[in-house]
Design a protein around this nucleic acid. Structure first.
Lengths: 235, 235
DNA sequence: CTCACATAGAGAACAGTGTTCACTTTGCGA
DNA sequence: TCGCAAAGTGAACACTGTTCTCTATGTGAG
């Protein structure tokens, strides 16, 4: 009974989608954070108050947009994960493919990226929905780490020895929580890679790389490979 | 004649500082991006329009705040650079000290960090002043790279060979621009480290590390050391 | 087929915002 | 001491998100 698709229900879903589409369009040309309900309403030829039949507040609309963005990102990333895995590549190569997809998405969806990662939108607070969406995207990283461990690509013992006791303990706590076979050293390594990936993209998007290296997938690639090399056994 | 410090001039500087102080206070408790001129004015017991004698617009006030934030960051970072250098540590250890200062500043100045790095504040566009301020902070990284090269800490040739031709060329272009002795490989390595540093801080601040590893200087430290290890000659 | 009712929408209103403009007060320099 | 620029005021304008009352209208039950 959740999917009683009467005419009205379909119409409602359509308008909802149309609102979000107009919201994205507005943000794309004026930057996120200046999303104006009245503007969207004007654009759609309806009264501002009518929007409140679809989203309880501006924050709720933003939340829906953020969740959609996460979903779009997660979908693309997951797709490459599956495809690269099916092609029989090892976990590190799959990770590189996923990372490049991640970066490509960020570059071609700057508004979405900003909406997801720019701390502190005006007056906006994260909600459980967005946290859940974020977690799903994080899950792939965990999965990749487990794959790499299973494939013997990570020198687990050596990495483990580089951690100090308190850090190793934090890792162990989280590893239990994932339910995967994740030694502390491997988990730390995956965090290192995550940091490189996110940092390189973030700096690039914010224009904080010197001009000649801006928008350079090669720099991104080299940074990630450098970090991966640090995880391999045959040092 | 620029520093004719008449009574009026001093008063003016004071009010200007007071405005900024109130602005910071407001942002600290309501998040950045919701900075309201009227609120600041109310807090100071003056008419909203009076603020316009000090800052031509909300954007101008934001710019001043950002520049101040950069200056605060740059000052702290530079201080550790000087102190650690004077203590006779090698370039890598100095870098680690600088990185920890950087991270510490970010943690204790979340509002400032958000103001500097969160892309797309509502309606705010970067200005030459902020770019100049950013460049000054970037300069230390370049200096550290040069120090490391001079100290023979970086396996310049090996790193150089890992770069593909186009990337090496971009690096060379920028290296010339710095006026320092910076081989392409070393410059790439410094970008890798910059990415790790920024990424780890950014993820941590945005709460995108799993809870047990949140706010962990040790994880930050291990990630950076892993990347540094990738630069050393005695592989 | 009709009738009741939830749904979709309109439009006015409220409190808040950044910004401008004409006006007054006030302090400094000649 | 006088004149003028700087500092501050208060009203106004065009916005914003949100709420409220009100009116159509499509839908499901009898």
């Amino acid at each position: 009974m959740a999917e009683m698709t009467t005419h009205r229900h379909r119409r409602r879903a359509e308008t909802e989608a149309e609102i979000k589409a107009h919201a994205w369009a507005a943000m794309r040309e004026s930057g996120p954070a200046v999303l104006s309900l009245r503007h969207v309403a004007r654009e759609m030829g309806m009264a501002p108050s009518a929007l409140y039949r679809y989203f309880a507040s501006r924050n709720d609309l933003l939340t829906a947009l953020i969740v959609d963005a996460y979903e779009s990102l997660g979908e693309q990333v997951n797709e490459t994960y599956v495809r690269a895995g099916a092609a029989g590549q090892n976990a590190f190569e799959v990770f590189m493919a996923v990372a490049h997809t991640y970066r490509g998405w960020a570059m071609s969806h700057r508004t979405e990226w900003a909406l997801i990662f720019s701390t502190s939108l005006p007056d906006y607070n994260g909600t459980p929905e967005t946290y859940a969406a974020a977690g799903r995207s994080f899950g792939i990283l965990i999965q990749l780490t487990a794959d790499a461990v299973a494939g013997g690509l990570i020198d687990v013992d050596r990495l483990d020895r580089t951690l100090d006791d308190k850090l190793r303990e934090s890792m162990r706590v989280w590893a239990e929580h994932t339910g995967q076979e994740l030694p502390a050293g491997a988990l730390a390594g995956s965090m290192w890679c995550y940091s490189v990936m996110h940092g390189a993209i973030s700096l690039d998007l914010n224009g904080q790389f010197p001009p000649p290296m801006a928008d350079s997938p090669a720099l991104f690639d080299s940074a990630l490979r450098a970090m991966l090399a640090q995880l391999t056994p045959t040092d």
